[in-house]
Design a protein around this nucleic acid. Structure first.
Lengths: 349, 349
DNA sequence: ATGAAAGCGCTAACAG
DNA sequence: CTGTTAGCGCTTTCAT
């Protein structure tokens, strides 16, 4: 029951023409094949009347082209990813592509299955924010010459185009600022370890110390996930240390939410008792009980650029010489950082 | 270049058997067709060796079944929708379905096109959070007997299954509480007018007044979109009124963010100068400068139930007797509501 | 226990 | 100016 089934054939039969002709007219190739005005008329009106619409499955099978893009994200409910997803979908749609969306739940195994699933569904290309701990499944894709663009997370050792924020510089700038405000014990609550955004941000954190000839206390680099829970737990522990940090560098928006929870539970105040800066600006960041100083990423550009890169690749039918694109971040100063008076001699700003 | 193309045929040729046999074995129908153990072996190993994986386009064309669900949302970057999307995708994936995701940008025209696009792609069913102002395109779908479930927004006049929060009761409870705290001039900043969640919430707002034999000042019901901007603008205007409200009922999380911005710009404090309660709890709600009293919805259940309902419909191959499911909300009290001392005589809690 | 053939709906090569 | 034919990769009916 469930089908309308107006096909090229049904139109052809009804008008006593061949499916070829119908196909040609309906695909705007009337001129190239010099189809008579009358048959054009006939076919067009019939198609409209029956509200014909081509079966994209059949079309895709024949053409080896589906106009759909596979999109794999580690967590669509994370506002960072969903704001990017918005622009990925929108840009794709404007260029005539649809999005097959899957969530890998930060699980490499799931990601791997999803990848196969998308290949089987014959997507024209892939945008993926990989979990980032394993490369081999991605390398396999690359070898199959399926157009692909990595988003947010990349692999230095892998020759694939990617677009991401300049996480290193963003972190460097943020931690520099903290140090210049007199902080010497700055904790870094990291996300998923060995993931490029994480590594780059931690590297920025460390280099900021080096620049200021400050040693890094390894015990102050903690955590292992981009989630809220991680921020909460690690902050709890940090605050219990013998020599607790005077400032916190939270590597993601969710981490900082967890950190805030822990800090307030301990009856402490930001920035009076502890200063804080967080990666990822969010619409609510400025309205938090202490408006948060953040490192803001260009979420809308990231998605757009990734799609453009990918569709270029698809439509030019050539492998892109793989290049990585780093987008600059912006440090947004609000109220969560205070000069550290204990030792804060060097006045600033 | 771009293809591996291990097909049933290529396996069949290599082993000198028919594609039929290969198909049967690989689909686990060996027993039913009494395929010999040897050929089974042969085929299975060959398939593994070549890492065969069926072309889902071909399969879908033949079977008229794609195991994909079309999902249309008005704004994936809205954390309310993205948290639902998380569970829609996850539940679908667990049951063997993929999600074709599109964003209608709260635009009926786009929504209509998207609907056709999904039908052409032969999705097995549809989950849609419709814009909600127009019904006809949805009615048309219903008539085509394509399984569909409405999410968040529904149409009383339309016989389609839906799942949504009990917006009426949620609003009723919230505004009741405000009134019982002595507020008599409560503004309601609404979302997209004539949309079911909006209408139900506004109705709750009005009925709360009726219950307490309080008249409703129409000038206090303002706004026209679920976005942040709307919250900002309307709050600005409200605060300039001759007899400004002592409390605000914001119909969405984004609206409340806008309202907060306006309130703080005017140098006012929540709840000292104005009380506030907002629909939609978010992870950050408790950390706002004034922890926000909210009406919390069961986002994860909503998505799950919608998918279950839809897949039931798909796999039972029958139209569901369309029923609407309303999920209860929960009022989370925090610090954004204060007893109104001006006239607040009736003490409470 | 296995295969041949038809067909899902479409496009393209070739033919006139 | 139009049509015939083949085929994309798969499943299923009907035969044997």
């Amino acid at each position: 029951m469930r089908s309308s089934n107006v096909t090229l054939k049904s139109i052809a039969d009804r008008l006593n023409v061949s499916v070829t002709t119908v196909s040609r007219v309906l695909n705007g190739k009337s001129d190239r094949y010099r189809i008579s005005k009358e048959t054009q008329e006939l076919i067009n009106t019939a198609a409209k009347e029956l509200s014909y619409s081509p079966n994209q499955l059949a079309r895709g099978l024949r053409l080896k082209r589906t106009n759909t893009i596979g999109y794999i994200i580690p967590d669509i409910s994370n506002p960072f990813f969903s704001s990017i997803a918005k622009n990925v979908e929108k840009s794709a749609r404007k260029l005539g592509y649809s999005i097959l969306l899957c969530d890998s739940e930060e699980d490499t195994k799931i990601e791997e299955n999803l990848l196969q699933l998308m290949i089987d569904r014959k997507v024209d290309g892939l945008i993926i924010s990989p979990v980032g701990l394993e490369v081999n499944h991605l390398r396999r894709i690359a070898q199959k010459n399926i157009p692909i663009v990595l988003l947010d997370r990349y692999f230095p050792e892998l020759n694939l185009p990617f677009v991401t924020s300049d996480n290193y510089k963003g972190a460097l700038e943020a931690v520099n600022m903290l140090i210049e405000h007199g902080h010497k014990r700055i904790a870094c609550i990291q996300g998923l370890v060995n993931t490029s955004p994480n590594n780059d941000r931690v590297r920025g954190y460390i280099d900021a110390h080096k620049t200021h000839e400050l040693s890094v206390d390894k015990k102050l680099i903690v955590g292992d996930s981009f989630g809220e829970e991680n921020g909460y737990i690690e902050t709890k522990l940090l605050l219990k240390q013998d020599d607790p940090p005077t400032a916190l560098f939270a590597v993601s928006n969710l981490i900082s939410l967890g950190a805030i929870r822990a800090i307030s539970e301990e009856g402490l105040k930001i920035p009076d008792d502890i200063s804080m800066v967080s990666f990822d600006d969010q619409p609510y960041s400025r309205f938090l009980s202490t408006p948060m100083t953040t490192v803001s990423q260009q979420n809308s550009q990231i998605g757009q650029i990734a799609i453009k890169l990918l569709i270029d690749q698809i439509e030019s039918n050539r492998q892109l010489e793989p290049k990585g694109i780093f987008l600059p971040t912006r440090l947004i100063s609000r109220d969560s950082v205070k000069r550290n008076i204990n030792l804060g001699i060097k006045a600033i700003g």
